[in-house]
């Protein structure tokens, strides 16, 4: 049975590492064997790595709104944020641009939020020399928390706004980071709860309805938020509201969001004079 609460996830993690509890559940749920489940997750990690490797700063989306940003930050970034954080920013942009330009990416949990997990995981693997095995375990952790979010709230922008896409990705990434840094399951839950709390209420307002503006840059925000929440959790900072309750709040916030702010391209930034002008230009093309 799929996990429907973080509390249940933590209970299962009392017996074995949390990533393994998620894998064990997958094996039961799908009738797969351990090697099959692991192989599938390892392929997702390989695909995330490849999509960043195949990035070119010359790529442009068909609307011409997106392209080149990841290259700019990779080349010039670091003066303010240092090499690690600027690599995180560049990686989020690169994946988001690859997605907008019809290149291969891994939906995690969605295509629009596909930059968040690779953005925090790849630079960390490089900095600390982590194994692909550790990264695959981290994806299980992220998937376990994502499963709870999907069952109690939503991972679809059309249903719950951007909080459900970049917000969910950020919460999943925060938990995965705590795992990679040797934190406890409770710290993973606090990190996820903090990350979700910080993005609660974020609307989905894509200009011209495309997964480009502001989506690509919101991936950067989701990644940076995940890092800071994981850091706090690893230092023993706790979230006052338990993770399950934060997820329930996310659902009720999503339910009360007007349709204009749920991926219809009718509200928020999409409804600004410039947003409308861009939409007219693209749709008239």
């Amino acid at each position: 049975m799929a996990f429907t609460s973080v509390e249940g996830l933590l209970r299962a993690a009392a017996e074995m590492p949390l990533w393994q509890a998620v894998q064990a559940d997958d094996i039961r749920d799908r009738g797969a064997d351990a090697a099959d489940s692991w192989g599938q997750m390892a392929r997702l990690w390989a695909a995330m790595t490849e999509s960043v490797a195949q990035y070119s700063p010359l790529l442009r989306s068909s609307s011409d709104l997106v392209g080149g940003e990841g290259g700019l930050v990779a080349e010039q970034g670091g003066r303010l944020c240092g090499p690690f954080l600027s690599a995180v920013i560049a990686t989020a942009l690169k994946t988001g641009e690859c997605n907008a330009c019809m290149r291969r990416i891994v939906a995690a949990p969605t295509a629009g939020a596909s930059g968040v997990l690779p953005a925090v995981l790849l630079p960390l693997q490089q900095r600390d020399g982590l194994s692909d095995e550790a990264m695959t375990q981290a994806l299980y952790v992220a998937a376990g928390f994502g499963q709870v979010i999907a069952s109690r709230a939503s991972i679809s922008g059309a249903e719950g706004g951007c909080q459900a896409e970049v917000g969910s990705a950020s919460g999943m990434a925060a938990a995965a980071l705590v795992h990679l840094m040797g934190g406890t399951p409770e710290q993973m839950a606090h990190a996820c709860a903090m990350a979700l709390s910080n993005i609660l209420g974020l609307v989905c307002d894509p200009v011209a309805g495309l997964v480009e503006v502001p989506c690509v840059k919101r991936n950067v925000m989701g990644a940076m938020n995940a890092l800071s929440c994981a850091e706090m959790a690893l230092c023993g900072v706790k979230n006052a509201i338990p993770c399950d309750e934060v997820i329930d709040a996310m659902r009720s916030v999503g339910d009360s969001m007007p349709a204009a702010l749920r991926e219809t391209g009718a509200g928020g930034l999409a409804a600004t004079p410039t947003g409308r002008r861009i939409a007219e230009q693209i749709l008239g093309k």
Binding site: A2, V22, D25, D26, D29, R30, Q40, M41, R43, L44, A47, S61, C98, N99, A100, C101, M102, R103, R104, I105, V106, A107, A108, P109, T110, A111, G112, S114, L139, Y140, A142, A143, G144, G146, Q147, A150, S151, I155, A158, L210, V211, E212
Partner: peptide, 21 residues
Amino acid sequence: MNIFDIMGPVMVGPSSSHTAG
């Protein structure tokens, strides 16, 4: 949803509903 509905699929962008679907 199983965990590979959450993590994945590997797909060509930009949208799981408008492109991959």
